[in-house]
Computed example of a mutant assay.
Amino acid sequence: MTSDKTELNDAELSRYSRQILLSDVDYDGQLTLTQSHAVIFGLGGLGSPAALYLASAGVGKLTLVDFDQVDDSNLQRQVIHREANIGQDKVASAKTNLQALNHHIEISTVATKLTEAELADLVAMADVVLDCTDNFESRFALNRQCRRHGVPLVSGAAIRWEGQLTTYDFRQAETPCYQCLYKEEQGQELTCSQNGVLAPVVGMVGSMQAIEAIKVLLTLPTLMGKLMIMDAHTMQFRTLNLPKDPDCKTCRD
């Protein structure tokens, strides 16, 4: 945990009262959330709802990482941004709107592309990392660093009407990793800019990423070892086993 906070004040008790009523959260769990640090990579379609719900749930420190700027085409699905934010760095836009939602939490931003060493340093400081990016290069880099530092990684993706979600809990030796699912040499990736995406689909996946991150912080069961696949067109969900690949280069290394 990244905070020395030892108790919740009266304002926090009132704000988070509905969450504290849950037996799996309770006072101690809410205190744990306020002491925790989540790093969100990507403040687009997935990162928007994930950041909003982690902020509203009271995760004490959020670090937002994105080097892109807000464009009008983003507003269809990236619900953390507003028309007034067009042209701003996404992390600056997101920070402003998150601070308006919850002044009790600390928010840091990174608006530049990180070197491998900078990425390693940032991941090492996190209690949980959320991969809300949209490209294989970033996903593989996050996978490597989270595994190296033993930091849980919540990974989501969405395109067209489809989404997928899993958690790689690198605190557990038996967890698979992202490269157990996809190989770096696998080929060209699909992008929303080329294939499209329905706005609420990224909202659903990003919200579920926030749930998985909260469960990680509270040491509750997650999707580790499983891959959840969503088809919003038919509203069907499947959960597949995702075993550790004995030939995975990342796991072997």
Rank of each mutant, 00 (worst) to 15 (best):
D26N: 15
G29E: 02
Q30S: 07
T32C: 11
T34R: 15
Q35A: 09
Q35E: 08
H37A: 06
A38S: 08
V39G: 00
I40S: 00
F41Q: 04
G42P: 03
L43K: 03
G44E: 11
G44F: 08
L46H: 12
G47M: 04
P49L: 10
P49G: 08
A50F: 06
A51W: 00
A51P: 01
L52E: 09
L54D: 02
L54I: 09
A55G: 12
A57Y: 07
A57V: 11
G58M: 06
G58V: 05
G58P: 05
V59K: 00
G60R: 00
T63H: 06
L64R: 00
L64E: 00
V65E: 04
D66S: 06
D66I: 01
D66R: 04
F67R: 10
V70Y: 04
D72A: 09
S73R: 12
N74R: 06
N74P: 11
L75A: 05
L75F: 04
Q76T: 13
Q76I: 12
Q76H: 14
Q76V: 12
Q78K: 11
V79T: 13
V79S: 09
I80F: 03
H81V: 11
A84C: 07
I86P: 03
I86T: 08
G87D: 11
D89R: 12
D89G: 06
A92Q: 13
S93C: 11
A94G: 07
K95G: 02
T96D: 12
N97M: 04
Q99G: 02
Q99K: 12
L101W: 07
L101F: 07
N102Y: 05
N102Q: 08
H104M: 10
I105V: 07
I105K: 00
I105D: 00
E106H: 13
I107E: 02
T109D: 05
A111G: 14
A111E: 13
A111L: 07
L114M: 15
L114E: 11
E118F: 05
L119W: 03
L119C: 14
A120T: 14
A120V: 08
L122S: 01
L122K: 02
L122N: 03
V123I: 15
V123K: 01
A124D: 13
A124K: 14
A124S: 14
M125I: 05
A126S: 14
D127A: 07
V128H: 03
V129R: 00
D131N: 13
C132Y: 09
C132Q: 10
F136E: 12
R139T: 01
R139L: 05
F140W: 13
F140G: 09
A141D: 12
L142N: 02
R144Y: 14
R144W: 06
Q145M: 15
Q145T: 14
R147Y: 12
V151N: 03
P152W: 03
P152I: 10
L153K: 03
V154D: 01
S155T: 13
S155F: 07
A157P: 04
A158K: 04
A158V: 13
A158E: 09
I159F: 03
R160G: 04
R160Q: 15
G163K: 05
G163D: 09
T166N: 01
T167R: 10
Y168Q: 08
Y168H: 15
D169V: 03
